[in-house]
Write a protein that binds this DNA or RNA. Structure first.
Length: 538
RNA sequence: GAGGGUGUAGCUCAGCCUGGUAGAGCAGCGGACUUUUAAUCCGUCGGUCCCGAGUUCGAAUCUCGGCACCCUCACCA
């Protein structure tokens, strides 16, 4: 808070109400409170029999009558507030749900005895604790009939409109702390994400994988083709990169003798952002020694199926053990059936009506489709030409997939998969498979390259490719990692590896259209940076 | 990067096409009310119409420039 900033009228009023609560003897910012239970649990404690017994006892219960209704102590934000004079109704919300609280002048006499007065001085958005009997009102609403009410935190900022909620998308991302408690959908999706990740972690552990943490600050950013974020370390006077992938470190661990390793953590790529890309994103990357591409495809398929089953049961706990079908937009995605598999070459032929080996035709086709690219097509190598066609959004191979069926594309050309081991059967084909769901690439799988000489040659090839025709920006991220080659010289067992885009998978499983809706704090430009001078608002 | 859209009270929005000096609901404030459910009833306060320039007697409204966000496309694993 900036001291001399003039406070808004609504905030000033809230400060007055806070001071009023303080002068009633409350600590406006609360204190430790033991014995709190989640609101959902308090609601579950409601006992119709006990309510009936109290009803039967009537207004003047017989001597020795003991109120059998359960007591609960809950904490939550004030979502609604209805002041009926000598009886104040409010609705408290925590992360488990809402409950109505009645604060009656006659009955709310516990604690410091001023609970009713506090209810009168309460603003929407305040955090309170309430303790009392769990009962039901005439109209059937489960209610904590407060015997005590205490202040826990003052809300000085006016909350969103009580019925419409917070709609402004920009403010929802910028102020998640408001979005989370005012929009139950946000809380639901983001807590579900957390539980999905926990579930995936356990799945991997159950399969014998060891979770590890490898450097995020790297002197060389390798393991993928992407532009890194650049930073600088003062103490060593060292330029550093934020990692674009953990791959080269995880493989060093295989060399070190760890047979199954995985990491769930952030990667950083200095590229554009859209519905499927956030500059920092979470990846589950795993390597299994003595496995191959098939091994890790099975791993991913089981992992995704398990996560989907988990989401389905979280959404609909009563559901039987039928299929696992989850909605994504208009799609209904079936995770129970074996995932589809389709070859790169087949998809290409299906999309264009000729074989991808017909390179001359492919060049002509690309030149026709992309007049702007016509000049460059001549300088592109065969595989790039084919892949350019393959990845075309409208006509390409990926566009031919059934988005409602999780599908592995297999048989990628070796030429576009530099870190992948060529197939033993046909070296022109890489042992690589990419999992697509809902038209989104979710996870690539590889039989990893472990021959140091072949790897070194591929690195060199990439560097050469970088020098030829590519822009400076593109070439900066291509690096030759000498130590990684040295590690391979020590001997890495044959292995299968995969990298799963956690944010994208969570999007699909939770039916969210943009990656920002599954990230707690998506990247935003700073607020108030307009040329008129930065306005200090917090 | 290109095109389109949005930006008005704390929040949700109308007004903009067709220029005449700012509206509603909720929230707030004062009052009434011990079974309400977006409580109700009476009264009332609240504005950098995103920022800047221009056109005009007059701009929330029209024009130009800028900023932020959203959508589509492009780029990018």
């Amino acid at each position: 808070m900036i001291p001399d900033e003039p406070t808004h009228e609504l905030e000033a009023q809230r400060r007055r109400n806070r001071d009023a609560a303080a002068s009633l003897g409350f600590e406006p910012y609360g204190r430790r409170t033991d014995g709190l239970i989640p609101i959902a649990r308090a609601r579950g404690m409601y006992d119709p029999g006990a309510d009936a017994a109290v009803q039967a006892a009537g207004r003047s219960p017989p001597a020795g009558f003991v109120d059998p209704r359960p007591r609960a102590r809950v904490a939550g934000r004030v979502m609604l507030h209805r002041d009926n004079g000598k009886l104040v109704w409010m609705n408290l919300r925590d992360d488990t749900g809402d409950v109505q609280v009645a604060v009656s002048q006659k009955d709310c006499t516990g604690g410091n005895g001023r609970g009713f007065d506090l209810a009168k001085a309460t603003d929407l958005g305040d955090v309170l604790t309430a303790a009392g009997r769990v009962t039901r009102t005439r109209t059937g609403e489960i209610t904590v009939w407060a015997e005590e009410l205490d202040a826990a935190a003052k809300c000085l900022v006016p909350p969103p409109e009580k019925h419409a909620g917070l709609h402004d998308i920009e403010i929802r991302y910028r102020r998640r702390y408001v979005d989370l408690w005012s929009n139950p959908e946000t809380l639901g999706v983001l807590t579900l994400r957390s539980r999905i990740v926990a579930r995936m972690r356990r799945f991997m552990e159950d399969r014998g994988f060891l979770e590890v943490e490898t450097p995020m600050l790297q002197t060389l950013a390798g393991g993928a083709a992407a532009r890194p974020f650049v930073t600088h370390m003062n103490a060593l006077g060292l330029p550093l990169f934020m990692r674009i992938a953990p791959e080269l470190y995880l493989k060093r661990l295989l060399v070190g003798g760890l047979p199954r390793v995985f990491e769930i953590n952030r990667n950083f790529r200095n590229e554009g952002l859209d519905k499927q890309h956030n500059p920092e994103f979470t990846m589950l990357e795993a390597y299994q020694a003595f496995g191959d591409v098939e091994t890790v495809m099975e791993l991913t398929e089981s992992l995704v199926r398990d996560a989907a089953a988990f989401v389905r049961s979280a959404r609909d706990p009563g559901a039987g053990d039928g299929g696992i079908v989850l909605p994504f937009g208009d799609l209904r995605i079936d995770y129970a059936r074996p995932f589809e598999r389709v070859g790169y070459g087949d998809l290409f032929a299906r999309a264009y009506g000729f074989e991808m080996t017909d390179v001359a035709r492919a060049r002509a086709e690309l030149a026709r489709m992309r007049p702007g690219l016509a000049a460059t097509v001549g300088r592109m190598d065969d595989a790039s030409v084919v892949n350019e066609l393959f990845e075309d959004k409208e006509r390409g191979g990926e566009a031919r997939l059934d988005p409602s069926r999780p599908t592995f594309i297999t048989g990628y050309p070796s030429a576009i998969s530099p870190l992948t081991r060529p197939s033993r059967v046909n070296p022109a084909i890489a042992d690589r498979a990419d999992l697509f769901i809902a038209g989104m690439e979710i996870a690539p799988h590889y039989t990893e390259l472990n021959d140091p000489d072949v790897q070194a040659a591929k690195f060199r090839e990439q560097l050469r490719g970088a020098d030829a025709g590519k822009s400076d920006e593109e070439s900066t991220f291509r690096t030759f990692d000498e130590d990684f080659i040295r590690a391979l010289k020590v001997g890495m067992p044959p292995a299968g590896g995969m990298g799963l885009g956690v944010d994208r998978l969570v999007m699909i499983l939770t039916d969210q259209r943009t990656i920002r809706d599954v990230i707690l704090f998506p990247l935003m430009r700073p607020e108030g940076a307009s040329p008129g001078g930065p306005s200090e608002r917090e």
